[in-house]
Design a protein around this nucleic acid. Sequence first.
RNA 1: GGCGGGGUAGCCAAGUGGUAAGGCACGGCUCUGCAAAAGCUGUAUACGUCGGUUCGAUUCCGACCCUCGCCUCCA
Length: 470
Amino acid sequence: MQLFNTLTRAVEPIIPLDPAGKRVSLYVCGPTIYNYGHIGNFRTYVAVDLLRRSLRHFGYNVDHVMQFTDVDDKTIRGAREKNLPLKEFTAIYRQAFLEDAKTLNIEIPERTPNATDHIPAMIALIQKLLDKKSAYVSDDGSVYFRIASFPDYGCLCHLDLEGLISGARVSQDEYEKEGVGDFVLWKKWVAADGEVGWDSPWGKGRPGWHIECSALSMEHLGPQIDIHGGGTDLRFPHHENEIAQSEAATGLPFVGHWFHVEHLLVDGQKMSKSLGNMYTVRDVLDRGYTGRELRYALLSGANYAKNLNFTWQGMEDAKTALQRIDEWRKRVRAVAPALPPPDSEQMEASPGVATFLRELDLALANDLNINDALGRFFSLIRETHKALDAGTLTPLQAHHLKVAWNKFDAILGLGDAVVAVPAEIQALLDQRAEARKAKNFSLSDELRKKIEVLGWKVKDTAKGQELLPG
RNA sequence: GGCGGGGUAGCCAAGUGGUAAGGCACGGCUCUGCAAAAGCUGUAUACGUCGGUUCGAUUCCGACCCUCGCCUCCA
């Protein structure tokens, strides 16, 4: 399986550190839990989910860790505004994130530690950096990483330090630092922190943002990991700093493969509060879309490494495309017998299906090209309909199609459309069935209208009425 | 200023040194009590501009234009 590696700027095969080549360690920078996540956040996590599922598709055991950042300026401020202890405040948004992830059918990583549950590991790592003279304690009692001690600094983002420093914005309040690029590992407690703070060898304070990911990934996955992912904005400085900290501490290459997901745009523009285009998952649901429709839009809207332009028209397109898939599945299911899954040799009895599965592998192995796979899948759908209409699709072939879908959906994660029919609607449907039986079409039409007003569509098929959400 | 992504039909989006998947939209047909839905099918001067390399470039090279992002808050 080949994946673009930001570090080398090349598509490269994934070669796990595991001698058996089976286990892949994956660390992903999780959200700061001070608010509901927006669809941009979830674009990243849907892409990571695609990676995770694809790795498993190719037979890897994925050991995936994602931390929740539950202490920083924003969480502290939010807790203060709500007059809640930090822990209680962040618990609300941790829970919300997990719910939204479920809405999108994002698999929860094997471990999802909160940063503040691992303060000792961070302190130990900072101490190690101090011992190695890669860090220093400033006059005010904060601890900083000394960039000058790490010659490779800038390797991920291909920055040269000179240019970086001369061109960069430099905040004036950080006069305690030796070098402008130095970043904080441990922040000395200040009054604005209120109740928040932990004791350390350098006094009361809290960890800097970057150190948590290094400490947590080392604690859970060891000093070296196969893949480290996150949103593209984290490349610099966050991931650059993680590399510096981690490698300065261990002397080992920290990450084999850096995986960065490009940002989502809304109507071609960056999301921002002032434009009023920051949508949460809940906002999308409130507009009447389902989580799987949003997931499909996020998955098919663009390759993970490209900007994805979110539009409501795009949501409509996703919804319609998904209906096409669902319709196909209904037809296939009606013909497919219950049989055990075939092996690949038996699958050759359905050349179209066998070809599709090979194409699926190739597409995924090629830097997660899900759109290529979807394109081929829709072609398979057309072929199926044609065969079905011609009456040439055998039950065995239908079975194979069903199996192929299951394999594909293990990656897509779309599952089934869940339609809960309200009792009121069901009653109208029953009445209408009666009317139709009696060939009372005017009453039938009247009932159809009533149902439509309530937000549902009825279609009449050879097998009777079928209900669709409006 | 430094670095990096993009510009493919009405919209979205794959891809390739030999004349370009797929989805949505649109037209036609089938089905239907009527619809709707669905299916089939069709349409389109679609590869930002100008040069270069080549038998041949959308695909390689150069320049330019437009656009988006990052340059220590940020998925």
